[in-house]
Design a protein around this nucleic acid. Structure first.
Ligand SMILES: Nc1ccn([C@H]2C[C@H](O)[C@@H](COP(=O)(O)OP(=O)(O)OP(=O)(O)O)O2)c(=O)n1
Ligand SMILES: [Mg+2]
Ligand SMILES: [Mg+2]
Length: 506
DNA sequence: TTCATCTGCGCG
DNA sequence: AAAGCGCGCAGATGAA
């Protein structure tokens, strides 16, 4: 602490979590001069830490135990400690060439995220209450059927209790162990296998799916409404991931169901204000385009220059139907295959995913790499880069350390290799949409529009738009997102709108 | 009650 | 032995 005064740079304001500060001060305040957000910078410098709490950062970087100070000194000590990070972090930002990422992207983005959180999104509560009743009704019926098939009632949300019924009472074959090896797994993969031997597993799967929707979405969402705004306000975490993506919590609005009728039913509960519309803008095949850009694969590049849809083509091939006959479920599986193979899925994993044998899966993967030879070269290049430099980087220079790339434990090392392959792509996707959010925020303001950003779902932006602004906002959103950072291949955005999030998807 | 860990599963 | 990556949440379980 002795050179505390020397470290105080007059033109620089030092904060810990500026987005939170905006909330405290209600947004009508703007710091002047150079702004240094210790939490945000710590994450940019090293995005793989467990915690970015001031306590943990102070202990690691300053050797200070803030928590063991006498009570009452806490706030003052925190404020003083904060200053100490500047002389440590500021040079490192420059040394790692992360100044522009911080000053021109992440820092201004924090204000945009603040506004999105403050705005919130409207929920149709009576609709959800009805949906809850319907789900409970269906669950009750399923529960009765399950107990009848089991010959006794049991806690069917307990894996252990379910194990006893399936593997001991009914004598069905045990499959794999649970990840920590403490018991036998009853996950969807195992139960699907068992479904051909006994009617019970399928009922349990159906029960689990409906219970998940009820307990995770339909019941909690109305309780999360802020009474003073009548809307749900998520928190976007800007320092929450190792790749550069955002995360969302309390509630998480980045994992709202989308599959099947039930998913659609839940999305109908996210509605626009009267006189407004929800406008969704989702990048088309975003990470495949980034893969084309980074790998330079001629086939992949040409496909995108010709406006083709790789997911649909893959689905058409796998299911042996014409592209026009590809359903949303088929295309969804194709995504898993396309990204799975690109990110290191083994023949074993692919065989499980497609329900084919190992040999066929192996052949499928070989065909994939024959078709897109640049993809394999990209994978090898990222692994080599991680080995040589100890980290990998994204489009805008964001970097993730990959220390385990040198592990002598094969499983650990191979996990690190797949991480090295995935992070530049996933992280660049994050770079692109974050930049688009900034530009869009500016553009909406400049054009004097009331249209506003509500949510970011990794490669999708959800806006709320006054009906009369749709004509102007929709093309603006498309232009900003598609042109935000030109690549070797064009970026395309799928736009959809409606009174609710289900309509704004079609 | 609260907390951590495990399992499972929703989304991108 | 393990065999796409990235998240957050709910319930069960066991301990404080
Ligand atoms: N199983 C999945 C699904 C998605 N993603 C990543 C890669 C996708 O590019 C990105 C965005 O997901 P989308 O569902 O929007 O998929 P795409 O953008 O690829 O396709 P679409 O044209 O349907 O938007 O998330 C992934 O890694 N694994
Ligand atoms: Mg997309
Ligand atoms: Mg998407």
């Amino acid at each position: 602490m002795k050179d505390f005064l020397a470290s105080l740079v007059p033109e620089t304001k030092i904060f810990y979590d500026l987005k939170d500060c905006y909330h405290f001060l209600n947004g009508n305040w703007e710091p002047a001069g150079e702004v240094f957000d210790v939490k945000l910078v710590a994450w940019i410098l090293e995005p793989t830490k467990r915690s970015y709490s001031l306590e943990d950062l102070a202990e690691e970087y300053l050797g200070l135990r803030l928590s063991s100070l006498p009570p009452g000194l806490g706030a003052a000590a925190r404020a003083l400690a904060l200053q100490e990070f500047y002389p440590l972090f500021r040079p490192e930002l420059k040394a790692k060439a992360l100044e522009r990422l911080y000053f021109e992207l992440e820092l201004p983005l924090s204000k945009v995220l603040y506004r999105m959180e403050k705005t919130g999104i409207k929920i149709d509560v009576p609709y959800l209450r009805q949906l809850a009743e319907d789900l409970k009704e269906a669950l009750k019926g399923l529960e009765a059927e399950i107990f009848l098939l089991a010959g006794e009632p049991f806690n069917l949300r307990s894996g252990r209790a379910l194990s006893r019924i399936l593997f001991e009472k009914l004598g069905l074959p045990r499959g794999k162990k649970t990840p920590k090896g403490t018991g036998f797994s009853t996950d969807v993969e195992v139960l699907s296998e068992l479904a051909s031997l006994h009617p019970l597993p399928a009922k349990v799967l159906r029960y689990r799916a409906l219970y998940k929707l009820l307990s995770t979405y339909v019941e909690p969402l109305p309780r999360m409404i802020n009474p003073s705004t009548g809307r749900v306000h998520t928190t976007f975490h800007q320092t929450g991931t190792a790749t550069g993506r955002l995360s969302s919590s309390d509630p998480n609005l980045q994992n709202i169901p989308v599959k099947g009728e039930e998913g659609e039913a839940i999305r109908k509960a996210f509605v626009a204000e009267e006189g407004w519309l929800l406008l969704s803008a989702d990048y088309s095949q975003i990470e495949l385009r980034l893969l084309a850009h980074f790998s330079g694969d001629e086939n992949l590049k040409q496909a995108f220059q010709e406006g083709r849809d790789i997911h649909t083509a893959c689905a058409s091939e796998v299911f042996g139907v014409a592209p026009l006959e590809v359903t949303p479920e088929m295309r969804r599986l194709a995504k898993v295959i396309n990204f799975g193979i690109a990110y290191g899925m083994s023949p074993y994993g692919l065989s499980k995913e497609l329900g084919i044998d190992l040999k066929q899966a192996k052949a499928f993967i070989e065909r994939y790499f024959e078709r897109y030879p640049g993809v394999r070269r990209y994978m090898e290049k990222m692994v080599a880069q991680a080995r040589e430099q100890g980290f990998v980087t994204t489009l805008l220079g964001r970097r993730r350390p990959i220390p385990d790339i040198h592990s002598r434990e094969r499983a650990v090392r191979e996990f690190a290799e797949r991480t090295a392959i995935n992070t530049p792509i996933q992280g660049s996707g994050a770079d692109i949409i974050k930049l688009a959010m900034l530009r869009l925020d500016q553009a909406l303001r400049k054009q004097g529009l009331r249209s506003r950003l509500l949510l970011q779902v990794h490669d999708e932006l959800l806006l709320e738009v006054p009906e009369e602004e749709l004509e102007q906002t929709a093309p603006l959103v498309r232009k900003v997102m598609e042109e935000v950072y030109p690549l070797e291949v064009p970026l395309e955005v799928h736009l959809a709108w409606g009174k609710n999030w289900a309509e704004a998807k079609a």
